[in-house]
Simulated assay, not measured.
Amino acid sequence: MNKLESLKLFQDIQLVSTKYTTLKLKDNDKEVEDNRKLNSLLEFYKSSLDKIKERSHFVSKQTRDELKNASSKDIYKALIDLNNFANSKYKFVKNSDMDIESTTVKAVMLSTVDELTLINESIRNKEYLKDKNTYFYIYEKIVINAFMTFLALKDMDIETEKRNSLSQGILSQIQTLSIISM
């Protein structure tokens, strides 16, 4: 565990968990209702974690199958393209107007995007080459958690464009991890 905790990526992810704690719920019934609903949805999807992992592994397998006859150059290009596409989707969500969502939704969505951005950047910097197993472990945990969180967020009042961008970014990140694991 000390090895994991000594990684800058791990430390940066830990910082994300406290980044949005200063956001205050607005004093209205909608905020309280949204908070309860989102917590309930997160608990529901946590109980379905095995199914979520199965869906993620299915996407990974499809990606590997599509690239099994590709050249190293084409595989590397796919890795870069997917990672860049995911990053553009995270930037869209992060830079979009968040005033319309509830404080709870805003905090959960932005912290999820921040974590995904950190692993996206780590992949772009090829940090995983230092210790593939440890980095892949972190990447996979973050992406699976983001997938679960997305499923909960999709049932909340979020603009379609933001929801779709988050979904596309997570899917692309799953595909990126699949390529790294080849």
Rank of each mutant, 00 (worst) to 15 (best):
F150H: 10
L129C: 01
A152I: 08
L151A: 09
S165M: 11
K141D: 10
F147Y: 15
F147M: 13
N120G: 14
V113F: 07
K126R: 14
L116E: 04
E161C: 04
A146N: 06
E161F: 10
V108C: 04
E161P: 02
I123A: 04
M148G: 10
M156K: 14
T104V: 12
T112D: 08
N145Q: 13
K130F: 03
Y137E: 10
K126P: 00
D114K: 03
D157K: 15
D155W: 04
T117K: 11
S165I: 03
S167C: 03
N164M: 12
S102F: 01
M148D: 07
K162Q: 13
T112K: 07
E115F: 07
I123S: 03
S167W: 09
L129Q: 11
S102K: 05
L153S: 06
E121Q: 15
T117G: 09
D131K: 08
Y128Q: 07
N133W: 00
K132L: 02
L153G: 05
E161L: 15
R124Y: 05
I158C: 03
L118N: 06
L118H: 06
I119G: 04
S102A: 13
K141M: 09
F150C: 06
E121F: 10
R163V: 07
I158R: 01
R163N: 11
M148L: 15
D114G: 08
K126Y: 08
K154E: 13
V113P: 00
L118W: 05
V105C: 08
D114A: 10
I100P: 02
I100E: 09
D99R: 13
